[in-house]
C-alpha cells in the first residue's frame, strides 16, 4: 500500500539524479564520479530495494492467489482484477473517492488561494496568521481525526458541535454514526481542510511573493479594479504554482486514508464504515484479511486511476508546459 502512496514522489525524486549535460570535452574527473557514486548510491540502492523491488513484487502478487502469504507461485491471471471490478464494495469505494475528490479538490484549492491572497494583502499581523494557519499542517492526521471524533463531533449533548447546535435549538446529532443524512461528511471534510489548507496556503503565498509589484502598480495606474488585477495578473502569474498544488491536492485526495480510517474505526476495524476510500478498503483486504493478491491488484487499479487523472489534468491545465 505504501508503494502506491509514494509512487508519485519517487518518480519526482528520481528525476534530478541525472547529470547535467553540456560538459563534454573535459577529461573525466574520476574523483567526482566516485564522490557522485558514493553520495547517491545509498539513495539509489534504497529506492531500488525498498520501492521498485517491492512495487515489482506487488505487481507479480496481483496475478497470484496469495492468501496469508507473499510467496509467488499460484498464478491466477487476471482473476484478482476481475474479482475487484465485479465487487460492489470495491466499486463503491472507487466511485466514492472520485466524488470525494471532485468536491474536495476545488474547495481545498479555493480556500488555500483565498487565504493566501487575503494574507498577502495584510499590512499587519501577517506572520501571526501565517503561522496560525500553518500549525495544523504539523498535526498528525490520526490525532486530528481523534480530536474531531471524540471531542468536536461526539454524539453527546456536551460535544462541541452539539453544544453550538444547541444554541440554535437543534437536536442532539450523531455526527458520525448517522448515515441519513450523511453528516459524517462534515466531520471528514472539515478535518481534512483544517489539516491541509495551511500548507497549500504557504505555497501560494510563496508564489504571490514572486509576482513583481510593478505589474500591480502599472495596472493600478491604468485604473484596473481589484478583481481585474486578481483575474489578469495574480491568477496568470500563479499558474505554475496552481498547477503543482492542484496535482498535490488531487493525489492526496485519492490517497485519503488516515482521517477516514480513524473517524470510522471501531473494535472490528472499518467494516461498519459508511464509506471506505480505496486505501482503507485495501488495508482491510491485504493486511486485515491477509489477501495480498487482491490487495495488490487493488493498489494497481488505484495507481492506474491516479495516473490517468493526473495525465488528464496535465492535458487540461498544462502541467510542465512552458509559459
Amino acid at each position: 500500500m505504501s508503494d502506491t502512496a509514494t509512487t508519485g514522489q519517487t518518480a519526482a525524486a528520481a528525476r534530478p539524479a541525472g547529470v547535467r549535460p553540456g560538459r563534454r570535452g573535459r577529461p573525466t574527473d574520476w574523483r567526482a564520479v566516485g564522490a557522485f557514486a558514493v553520495l547517491t548510491a545509498p539513495t539509489v540502492l534504497g529506492l531500488g530495494l525498498f520501492k521498485y523491488v517491492a512495487i515489482g513484487w506487488s505487481f507479480l502478487l496481483s496475478f497470484s492467489e496469495a492468501r496469508g502469504t507473499v510467496d509467488l507461485g499460484s498464478w491466477v491471471g487476471f482473476d484478482n482484477y476481475t474479482f475487484l471490478l465485479g465487487d460492489e464494495a470495491f466499486r463503491s469505494s472507487m466511485t466514492g473517492v472520485i466524488l470525494f475528490t471532485i468536491f474536495i479538490v476545488p474547495v481545498t484549492f479555493g480556500i488555500s488561494l483565498g487565504l493566501a491572497v487575503l494574507l498577502h494583502g495584510m499590512r499587519r499581523g501577517r506572520a501571526f496568521f501565517r503561522t496560525g494557519f500553518l500549525i495544523p499542517a504539523a498535526v498528525s492526521y490520526v490525532v486530528a481525526a481523534l480530536i474531531w471524533k471524540m471531542s468536536l463531533f461526539n454524539g453527546l449533548p456536551s460535544g462541541v458541535a452539539n453544544t453550538i447546535g444547541g444554541l440554535f435549538g437543534w437536536d442532539v446529532q450523531s455526527w458520525i454514526a448517522s448515515t441519513d443524512p450523511p453528516l459524517y461528511w462534515i466531520v471528514i471534510i472539515t478535518v481534512r481542510l483544517w489539516l491541509q489548507v495551511g500548507l497549500y496556503m504557504i505555497l501560494f503565498l510563496a508564489g504571490l511573493q514572486a509576482i513583481p509589484v510593478h505589474l500591480y502598480e502599472a495596472a493600478a495606474l491604468d485604473g484596473a479594479s481589484r478583481w481585474a488585477r486578481f483575474r489578469h495578473i495574480t491568477l496568470p502569474m500563479l499558474r505554475n504554482t496552481s498547477v503543482a498544488i492542484l496535482m498535490l491536492i488531487l493525489i492526496a485526495a485519492f490517497q485519503a486514508f488516515d482521517e477516514f480510517y480513524n473517524v470510522f474505526m471501531t473494535t472490528t476495524g472499518n467494516s461498519t464504515a459508511p464509506v471506505r476510500p480505496p486505501l482503507v478498503f485495501l488495508y482491510d483486504t491485504a493486511l486485515k484479511g491477509q489477501d495480498y493478491g487482491v490487495g495488490s491488484a487493488g493498489a494497481f487499479l488505484l495507481t492506474l486511476l491516479i495516473v490517468l487523472v493526473t495525465l488528464l489534468q496535465g492535458r487540461l491545465v498544462g502541467f510542465g508546459r512552458k509559459d
Binding site: T272, D284, T285
Partner: peptide, 28 residues
C-alpha cells in the same frame, strides 16, 4: 474471517441505518 465480516457488516449497516431491504441485502 474479516472479509466475510465485512460483507455481513456492510449489509447490517444498510439494513439498520438506511432502511435497506433486509432479505435481499443479506442474500447478497
Amino acid at each position: 474471517n474479516t472479509t466475510m465480516d465485512s460483507a455481513f457488516a456492510q449489509a447490517v449497516l444498510k439494513i439498520a441505518k438506511s432502511g435497506g431491504d433486509a432479505r435481499s441485502l443479506l442474500d447478497e
